[in-house]
Simulated assay, not measured.
Amino acid sequence: MSTQVQASVLHGAKDLRTETRPLSAPESDELQIRIASTGLCGSDLHYYTHHRNGDILVREPLSLGHESAGVVAAVGSNVSGFKAGDKVALEVGLPCGSCARCNEGRYNICKELKFRSSGKSFPHFQGTLQERINHPAKWCYKLPDEVGLDVGALLEPLGVALHAFRRSLMPKNATVVVYGAGAVGLLCAAVAKVKGAGKVIIADIDQGRLDFAVQNGFAHASYLVPMKRGKDMDENLAIAKETAAAIGKVENVGEVDVVFECTGVPSCVQAGIFSTKPGGRIMLVGMGHPIQTIPLGAAALREVDIVGVFRYANTYAESIEIVQASLKNPDSPAFSKLVTHRFKGLDEAVKAFEMAGKTKDADGNLVLKVVIDSLGDASSPKL
């Protein structure tokens, strides 16, 4: 039997409406999940602000949200291993399961993949800013008792960081620089640190974010990138070299083994190439400018690998292990502190999106990850 649920629906730029939708009973292979915590991502913010994300247009009313966790409300007839009341994190990209990339385990780049809250597939795959959704049990992950639903929602961007780490082939005791101290940059720094990097330096233009990173165990040290721009490309490349050299003096790391570039800003991509030692890797994690001007010769002549990163694949189980282990180690990154602002209920979605577009709130507090909490206190491990 179907029921009626509330959903936050985008109809145009900054036009969010709370509406009622029908929801059927879960199919035999699905769980019906009461969505508890949804983190707002940069792509969600682009859709909200511009009604598009790059060249991907929204072509019909769309519920946003894909960083989510919730509580099982009903279980499909063929599903085992779950019961009503279980806390779960959701992996919201559904691949075809039969193409060459899927067969290799690289389903994140499956051409037929449908991703909740994205306008790429049509009809759009509706996002998680709804009271309840039905979702295949195969792509749901049970959360341990000690892991709250807010942290469960963070497993999605943590998966991006873990996937980037895997593709980086980072050696033990490596030196690492992370450009960008937003949520994904902080998580890339955290994963590198817990995976055995000797030094993790994080660089950003915001001192508050850098202080947060070091004080909460996400990085060993930081560098404040000056707001400096050249009048032409030659001058910009000279500034990029200066930035890389200055970062190299932090903790005397010099050129580093791996750079995680999490901004997509051309000046940071350029500086990242100059930061990387011969034979090292720069990971392009940030989805910024689609066309980049980079010192390709400086990379090629030193055999610096430039490696793309797109979402994640097969990360949730290990991400859960990472956050579990962090709860037992006071020196580990404080993942739960990434959630800086919480809004209760779908009717607060507009306020939540407006906050997510800021770096500081009205009281001067740092804005990192904004979540919409649909069930109460999703930060509680027991919820």
Rank of each mutant, 00 (worst) to 15 (best):
34 R>K: 15
74 A>E: 12
120 K>G: 08
250 V>Y: 06
212 F>D: 00
328 K>V: 00
239 I>H: 13
108 N>T: 13
345 G>L: 13
260 F>S: 03
349 A>P: 08
346 L>W: 12
107 Y>I: 01
256 V>S: 01
4 Q>S: 06
205 I>E: 00
298 A>W: 13
267 S>C: 03
136 P>G: 03
305 D>E: 14
150 D>T: 00
169 L>S: 11
61 P>A: 03
19 E>I: 11
109 I>A: 13
285 V>F: 06
219 A>D: 08
342 R>G: 00
178 V>C: 10
359 T>Y: 06
19 E>R: 10
37 S>T: 14
25 A>R: 14
355 M>N: 12
312 Y>V: 10
75 V>S: 05
94 L>I: 15
2 S>V: 09
290 P>K: 12
54 G>W: 13
86 D>R: 10
295 P>C: 04
85 G>L: 06
379 S>H: 09
253 V>G: 02
327 L>T: 09
190 A>Y: 09
117 S>P: 14
295 P>D: 08
266 P>E: 04
359 T>S: 11
31 L>C: 10
195 K>I: 04
185 G>K: 00
187 L>M: 12
171 P>D: 06
333 P>K: 00
45 L>G: 06
54 G>L: 14
317 A>D: 15
95 P>E: 03
289 H>K: 15
96 C>S: 10
255 E>T: 14
322 I>K: 01
173 N>G: 08
29 D>I: 02
238 A>C: 13
347 D>M: 01
151 V>S: 09
20 T>N: 13
284 L>E: 03
347 D>R: 08
102 C>I: 09
189 A>N: 09
14 K>R: 15
371 V>L: 05
352 A>M: 12
169 L>I: 01
306 I>R: 03
51 H>I: 07
22 P>K: 14
161 A>K: 09
340 T>A: 06
380 S>N: 15
361 D>Q: 13
152 G>Q: 08
132 R>G: 01
74 A>H: 12
107 Y>W: 11
326 S>K: 11
320 I>P: 05
369 K>S: 01
230 G>T: 04
233 M>V: 08
8 S>L: 09
80 S>K: 14
145 D>C: 11
37 S>A: 13
104 E>M: 07
262 C>S: 05
291 I>Y: 12
276 T>P: 00
128 T>N: 07
183 A>D: 11
26 P>L: 02
21 R>P: 08
300 A>W: 15
162 L>W: 14
140 C>V: 05
304 V>H: 06
156 E>T: 04
222 S>F: 12
2 S>N: 11
113 L>E: 06
382 K>E: 15
318 E>L: 07
136 P>S: 00
155 L>K: 04
187 L>A: 02
150 D>G: 05
154 L>A: 03
220 H>C: 12
142 K>M: 12
335 F>Q: 06
105 G>F: 15
268 C>H: 13
341 H>Q: 10
135 H>M: 11
125 F>R: 03
12 G>I: 02
330 P>V: 00
172 K>V: 01
260 F>A: 07
189 A>W: 05
